[in-house]
């Protein structure tokens, strides 16, 4: 059976094509201000990647902030369920999964079957989402991709007072003026952000193995801050964490289809 999972997120729209539990195609485009268009584009890309035609797809699952716009969707998959399914798919030993994207952070406790037992969500405040690190990268005048590696070169975290992304921007600018090492600033940014996600995880309980999904999972600085805040050996991150929810949606479409 071939299914497609489409995750229309705040920043990127991602499509994953699944054939009998195997990922055969992926597509990702910026969501921008036209969600419908982004959905078509990412699907096209994934179809091309898989080398199949739209007619080959039997079922579609839609998820993400713009899931209502995914007109193809046979099932709309709740984001928590999608991330739980995906975590279980990548790492059957997963008991805790956190998904941090551009505009949200989530955490769920899951059982051996990948079913959700408890969850917490943080949204509508950039302080607890990828947007926070993006805004700080702008303030530091550093490429977003460089932020994580920079942070990992520092072993000094300076306490940051501001919690809000807007106020933290000025604080970072102040630190730069005070000639603080940018690597240390970057580490503090990731630590601050990670501690917010950790407090969410603590509310549902820290149970290993811990899996991280979402675009922020590509940021090694964040993953390291998360790991050390949680005091665990390892955070499990799949190869393409940003496609996590899309994979989950495709899996649900396959099960329910």
């Amino acid at each position: 059976m071939i299914t497609a999972g489409i995750d229309c997120g705040a920043k990127n729209t991602k499509t994953v094509i699944l054939r009998n539990n195997e990922i055969i195609g992926k597509g990702s485009v910026l969501t921008g201000f036209d969600q419908a268009n982004a959905i078509e584009k990412s699907l096209e890309e994934a179809l091309k990647d898989a080398g199949i035609s739209p007619d080959d797809i039997e079922k579609y699952g839609g998820t993400g902030a713009g899931m209502e716009v995914v007109r193809q969707a046979d099932t709309q998959v709740n984001e928590i369920k999608a991330m739980a399914k995906a975590a279980h798919f990548f790492f059957p030993s997963a008991r805790t999964v956190t998904d941090v994207g551009a505009e949200m952070g989530r955490a769920a406790k899951i059982n051996e079957e990948g079913r959700v037992e408890d969850f917490d969500i943080n949204e509508k405040c950039a302080a607890g989402a990828g947007a926070f690190i993006e805004a700080m990268a702008r303030a530091l005048e550093v490429e977003l991709e460089e932020m994580g590696p920079m942070a990992n070169e520092s072993d000094k975290s300076i306490p940051m007072n501001a919690q809000c992304a807007i106020f933290a921007e000025s604080e970072v600018v102040g630190l730069i003026h005070a000639k603080t090492n940018k690597k240390d600033i970057s580490k503090s940014i990731h630590d601050a952000m990670a501690s917010r996600i950790v407090s969410m995880i603590r509310r549902i309980g820290v149970n290993e193995d811990i899996v991280m999904l979402g675009g922020v999972g590509l940021n090694p600085g964040f993953v390291e801050s998360l790991r050390s805040e949680l005091e665990v050996e390892k955070i499990f991150v799949p190869e393409d964490p940003a496609f996590g929810a899309a994979v989950g949606a495709a899996l649900v479409a396959q099960e329910e289809g």
């Binding site: 201000f33 505009e103 509508k124 405040c125 950039a126 947007a131 805004a135 809000c164 992304a165 807007i166």
Partner: peptide, 18 residues
Amino acid sequence: SSTCVVYAKTEATGLLRS
């Protein structure tokens, strides 16, 4: 509609564009 200033900025950019 967004309370958060960061997200409101994105929203405003979208409004201007439309």
